[in-house]
Nucleic acid binder design. Structure first.
Lengths: 205, 205
DNA sequence: GTCTATAACTCGATAGAC
DNA sequence: GTCTATCGAGTTATAGAC
């Protein structure tokens, strides 16, 4: 009995891990149930035993992936820390997380663009991240004359762009700038500090 | 005879336009020959009459799309203009072009991530954009003490990120910041000036 | 729970009439 | 050059034995 339960959980986890790997790399359309079965070391029939069909399996993976990728914004921006600390921790933690899952941004953004409304709903389940606190802090800084007036939307876009895009544009950037995988990762490590510094330099009076 | 030629050209152009629309939106894997035929107002057989197979048709579209999207870097960065002008024209022209083809960045980056080596080859055909002039100008500015010391790779990444990413992350950004399509486009229009300003503020001493 | 075998279906591609 | 009809490969999904 114990053995049975262990096997169940083990197989299901193996499937989820395999499915994540394959879906994230190839996308919903490009992924094959056979690939996932192979990766998990089982056969196709067993996939359908655990998850009725491809779509159900995909949704599980997507929800988990996007749920890890997107709402992180929430946690950081809503935290009880100062304006500068928020920017620093956002850049540091985001880049860190993506370095461990380099294909995640492309995967999530791509599927999101194909089915915007449906996917957004699944991710946020009605509770969008509340930016008002962060924006409020920004406006205070502006009022106090410590930073230049800048529209919050642009600052947020700039920050997210500089953290996420390098991973999406990696093949192009690597080719254009002629850098190796190791050099790329080194550069990303640098960016955990370089991006917030760039932002502060841009906005500080 | 005139009529025949007109019909040929007309159909081929209709197919290419339809294929671009479908491929760019759904990607190589997600696109269906039937979708393209429908979009072009013809049937599948005729697609294969004009383009032997799906791959040939895709390559034509991809080459044209990426060829428009990527080498623009080249032209601007190699131009005979000053350091600041280059940054301004890059941001302005790039954002402008992408506003007219909002799905292009996602499409190109996505296919590029699936087949990096092969696709890079197709796009650049051996002549990568030469960044040395731009980098040289940047180093002069640093030496002259007009801008802060910053690694060229990071500056280039920042610039491209802030120009391109908003279009890739559009569904997420729109949702998170609660903005409409119109507001999004207005914001992008603003960015043609706001991004270079942000960059100058960040690097200028 | 897990497997083999196969049904059911999707989709790219071709044959052949007009 | 354009169409209808259909084939055949590749995939998802199910049946049924163990």
């Amino acid at each position: 009995m114990v053995k049975k339960k262990e096997t169940d959980a083990g197989t299901e986890q193996k499937i989820l891990a395999a499915a994540k790997k394959v879906f994230v790399k190839k996308g919903m359309d490009g992924a094959r149930m056979q690939d996932i079965a192979d990766e998990a070391g089982i056969n196709k029939a067993l996939l359908h035993y655990y998850f009725r069909n491809k779509e159900k399996l995909f949704e599980q993976i997507f929800a988990e992936s996007a749920g890890r990728f997107i709402p992180k914004v929430k946690a950081i921006l809503i935290a009880d820390t100062g304006f500068y600390e928020k920017i620093e921790s956002f850049c540091g933690e985001y880049i860190d997380m993506v370095m461990q899952n380099p294909y995640l941004p492309m995967f999530v953004m791509n599927e999101l663009q194909k089915q915007p409304a449906a996917m957004i709903k699944k991710i946020f389940k009605g509770s969008l991240p509340d930016l008002s606190k962060f924006i409020g802090q920004m406006q205070e800084e502006i009022k106090a004359g410590r930073i230049k007036p800048i529209h919050p939307a642009h600052l947020i876009m700039n920050m997210m762009s500089m953290c996420i895009f390098p991973f999406i544009g990696r093949p192009m950037l690597s080719a254009v700038m002629g850098i190796s995988d190791t050099q790329f990762m080194t550069a990303m490590e640098e960016r955990k500090k370089a991006v917030p510094k760039f932002i502060f330099d841009a906005i500080r009076k």
